[in-house]
Simulated assay, not measured.
Amino acid sequence: MSPTQTAQLMNGTGLARRIIEETAARAARISQRTNVVPCLATVLVGEDPASVTYVRMKRARCAKAGITSRHVGLPATTTTAELVDTLAALSQDPGVHGILLQHPAGEHIDERTAFEAIAPEKDVDGVTMHSFGAMSFGLPGFVSCTPGGIVRLLDEYDVDPAGRHAVVVGRSAILGKPIGMLLLAEDATVTYCHSRTADLSAVVREADIVIAAVGRPRLIRGEDIKPGAVVIDAGYNPGNTGDVDFDTARSRARLITPVPGGVGPMTIAVLLAQTVDAAARQLGVQGR
């Protein structure tokens, strides 16, 4: 890539729209065959403004995809045990096909314990240990939605991870770790980086594919991007700022995701697609 060129933007908004349209068609076919509409239950503890907005947006997307949404709002004082009881009840409810616990659920909540109360067949957000294990071993299950969306974006832009060096900056249980496993399954050589990585810049410079998922604004600088690399910015920070310094990175990368409009829309699209997958499996019908 010459110095005067800029990277092609990876349009997550457009791809997500197509996935939701396909999901709506699948949901309609399921409803016609079973008289049951796929249902996603959203659970929110407290009234954090950002979380309220995210849940409202997800429910609006459900409506566009022909999916029923059932919202369970719990007070901020809800205990871990009470949250576990709520999630267990939804797991046993045959009218609910997928469950989303909006996180963070609060500092007083043991989120791992809460996540594990979600039945694996309804874990459409891919947050349980069962889902992570199934994904890591290539077994049937649900992937974490943001990593799943990233893989769909790479496929859309004909990025084959096989033989490529992928550097994942971040090691969270629902983003960093699972995207690394998904890329490994596609024969990439994967390096995980984190807050204790020595000379992060030097590692990033070797990457053919950069996944920024650490939640620190503009941590990845443009001068650290290998010319022609693919840059996926999964970070979202105040002021619509990602983890990558977009303006400088765009002059060196071949492909790059914008923030917003890149990874974010894909996360919701995968959530809805997996909800319809879950409904199809639970109802015993073809979901395609």
Rank of each mutant, 00 (worst) to 15 (best):
A117W: 00
I118M: 08
A117N: 06
L153I: 08
V96M: 02
D158P: 06
L139I: 06
I109R: 00
P147K: 05
I99D: 04
G98E: 04
G163K: 12
V143W: 14
G138Y: 10
D155R: 05
D158N: 14
F132K: 02
E107T: 00
D123Q: 02
A162R: 14
D123K: 13
T146V: 10
R164M: 13
H103M: 12
G149E: 06
L100F: 11
P161E: 06
R112A: 12
V96L: 00
G141Y: 11
G163V: 03
R152K: 14
D110N: 06
E121G: 00
E121Y: 08
G98F: 08
D160C: 11
A134N: 09
P140G: 08
I109F: 01
L101A: 04
P147C: 07
F142P: 09
C145Q: 03
E116F: 09
I99K: 05
E116H: 12
D123P: 08
G149M: 12
H130N: 12
V124M: 11
E121R: 12
R112H: 14
G163F: 14
D125G: 11
T146F: 05
G133T: 15
R112F: 07
A117Q: 04
A134Q: 15
A166K: 12
F115C: 05
S131A: 15
D155E: 15
G133S: 06
P161R: 03
Y157W: 09
A119L: 11
F137S: 10
G126L: 09
F137P: 00
V124A: 13
F142M: 04
T113F: 00
G141F: 13
M129Q: 14
L100N: 07
I118H: 10
I99S: 07
D155H: 12
S131N: 09
A119C: 03
P161W: 07
D158G: 05
G163N: 14
P161D: 02
G149F: 14
Y157N: 01
C145K: 03
H103Y: 14
C145W: 06
D110M: 07
D125S: 09
